[in-house]
Design a protein around this nucleic acid. Structure first.
Lengths: 126, 126
DNA sequence: GGCTTGTATTGACGTTCGTTGATCCAACCT
DNA sequence: AGGTTGGATCAACGAACGTCAATACAAGCC
């Protein structure tokens, strides 16, 4: 957000094809918010990590020592991806003794699922 | 996929915390496939575009001339994002006369929603 | 034909991302 | 205290991404 003037949106732009479109169904703020969640899951490694963590029931936890050897990646890389998932609000962690345990935050997944179903057209079953 | 030997995963690694983890609930291939979809939606502009397109009922279409002026971005940028959404299999388009119309492919959204609900822990409501 | 409008493509730029080796910190164990 | 192990952080690299101006293509209109 820096180098472009923005003031050209006020027109109707109905040159012949557009019967005056309604407002966008997803405002910029919500889009930016949801996009962060989608982006966090937009990497195969993070998606597998999320799947491994979330598939452990509600109060289920996964030790990092179980996650790291499941990938052909270095330990810092896995740690980095876990950090991104945590910053996105998809998981949280706690250190217990020597090991660190991660668990899923289901409300983040719920927000994504809610958007996907709401974005679905209503004509599919009506 | 190029510069690392991978042959160190065969161990049990149960040093004291891991009661022999089960297999990952999402294999690499499916993870890579789904990650492409998530990644395509991991940009606020593309997410808004997808929302604007998908909110048009089942057979609904949106003209590009309606999408472009809704953003403070250049026309090539919008065209580029639409191309990425199309390559991800989320939308498709057709040229009709002078204008190009886009519509959503609901099955892609369904796959994402199915994954999100399947990845959700079963203890939330049981 | 030429002109105009809508859309896609190209080439380039700065930024962000994914990965790694090296290093650091925390906790356990003698 | 020293040594070892699990995990996070740092610094750096190449690759991919988002954006734009310029250009090319497609279709209608004069």
């Amino acid at each position: 957000m820096s180098k472009q003037g923005l003031k050209v949106i006020g027109q109707t732009t109905d040159a012949g094809c557009c019967p005056s479109l309604s407002a966008a169904p997803l405002d910029e703020d919500r889009a930016a918010d949801l996009a962060k969640l989608f982006k966090a899951l937009g990497d195969p490694v993070r998606l597998r990590l999320m799947s491994m963590i979330a598939s452990r029931g509600d109060g289920g936890e996964v030790c990092v020592c179980e996650l790291t050897p499941a990938f052909d990646l270095s330990q810092p890389t896995i740690s980095h991806h876990l950090k991104l998932l945590r910053q996105a609000g998809l998981i949280d962690c706690e250190r217990r003794g020597t090991w660190v345990y991660y668990w899923a935050l289901p409300q983040a997944l719920d927000r994504l699922a809610a958007f996907l179903t709401s974005a679905r057209p209503a004509g599919a079953e009506a």
